[in-house]
């Protein structure tokens, strides 16, 4: 309704960076059905009118608590799920308007890495056939060429050639995630949605996988949408970050602005909730503890969805959906009462 991100404004602050994915007013509502007739009695507004761009070669972090709509956003962008409203452009092509055939032709450019490497790899397929599957589906490589490409991919992700004939269960979580990455980059994609790619891994293994993903991004010029609930890791990997709450993006900014100068009260509270691995800082910190639970997305609060937990909410928040507005260059915020600090105001 209010999230007006006009193309003119976006192009202005993009300083000529190339947009690879453009999302406008995107919506994914899941119907809630009841009774024998399966009549629709309501809807889960999993993604509700969000707009953003992803620039070529960047990592856009997407953070938020469970149920905020991160996975749904990623799936809809890849057309693994159907939007119920809005527009998506991928490299200038209207993605939602594509027919099956055109979409299939575009598939190799858009890939995904999932959270649980255990569940996403077919246990009855060897590593070679898992990594080779996209090659068989989408490339014209002959079998010897495919084999060479598989060996090359395994080497790129740090697995040995003799791993090719083994099965997923013979690997640790971190190794399985490497297999998933090898498959994702097999067709030289442009854009990868990484949905909680390290959440299931041990801390000491997370760094291995993240370092690998960063290396591949540099070498292959990849663009990532990095979905995670780990705010510390997102600070580490992302160039810009979008914060979701109940289907809405509440703040979108460059990584340093978002972490050093957050403007939305939810972003602030979220950061304040993340413990630091430092006892001295932990004991000095001023904490904003949010009260209450996250409301249900089938019945979100009126006005600003965060208002039931917001420490600065006022009457207006109940009645009016806050506009998603640019408060600093490149920093977009949806809050009626978010404020720049006084110096900035004075300085214009």
């Amino acid at each position: 309704m209010t999230a007006e991100l006009t193309d003119a404004t976006v192009e202005n602050d993009a300083d000529e960076r190339e947009v690879i994915v453009r999302v406008r007013s995107l919506e994914r509502h899941f119907p809630i059905r009841k009774g024998i007739l399966k009549r629709q009695v309501g809807s889960v507004k999993a993604v509700d009118d969000i707009s953003f761009d992803i620039y070529k070669g960047e990592t856009l972090g997407l953070v938020g608590e469970s149920g905020s709509g991160k996975t749904t956003t990623g799936r809809v962008i890849l057309r693994l799920d159907d939007a119920t409203g809005g527009d998506i452009e991928f490299e200038g092509v209207d993605l939602l308007g594509l027919d099956h055939k055109a979409l299939r032709a575009l598939r190799p450019k858009m890939q995904t890495i999932f959270q649980d490497p255990h569940a996403s790899l077919n246990p009855r397929m060897t590593v070679a056939s898992i990594v080779g599957e996209p090659l068989r589906e989408h490339s014209k490589l002959r079998s010897a060429e495919q084999k060479a490409r598989i060996d090359e991919l395994l080497e790129i992700v740090g697995l040995a050639p003799d791993h090719a004939n083994r099965y997923p269960h013979e690997f640790s979580g971190g190794q399985r995630q490497r297999i998933g990455i090898a498959r994702a980059i097999a067709l030289n994609p442009e854009f990868i949605v990484c949905d909680e790619p390290i959440a299931a891994l041990d801390v000491s293994i997370q760094a291995q996988v993240v370092n690998l993903m960063e290396k591949l991004q540099k070498e292959l010029g990849l663009t990532y949408l990095f979905i995670s609930h780990d705010l510390s890791m997102v600070r580490h990997v992302a160039d810009r970050v979008a914060v979701m709450y109940l289907g809405k993006i509440v703040e979108l900014a460059g990584v340093d602005d978002l972490y050093d100068r957050p403007l939305h009260p939810y972003t602030k509270a979220l950061q304040s909730a993340v413990p630091l691995p430092d006892p001295i800082l932990e004991n000095m910190r001023d904490r904003t503890i949010l009260e209450g639970d996250i409301p249900s997305p089938s019945n979100p609060p009126s006005g600003c969805r965060f208002r039931t937990r917001c420490p600065i909410a006022q009457e207006q928040c109940k009645s009016e959906v806050p506009e998603f507005r640019e408060m600093r260059s490149g920093q977009w915020v949806a809050c009626h009462f978010a404020e720049l600090d006084s110096q900035e105001n004075a300085g214009g």
């Binding site: 640790s172 190794q175 041990d202 291995q208 993240v210 705010l231 600070r235 691995p277």
Partner: peptide, 24 residues
């Protein structure tokens, strides 16, 4: 040491994460 070095920090800009190689 390795564990602390492999932790990203919310309050610090992206330093290199020193990963612990190998498996548990």
């Amino acid at each position: 040491r390795g564990l602390l070095g492999s932790l990203p920090r919310l309050d610090q800009k992206g330093h290199e994460l020193t990963s612990i190689e190998g498996q548990p």
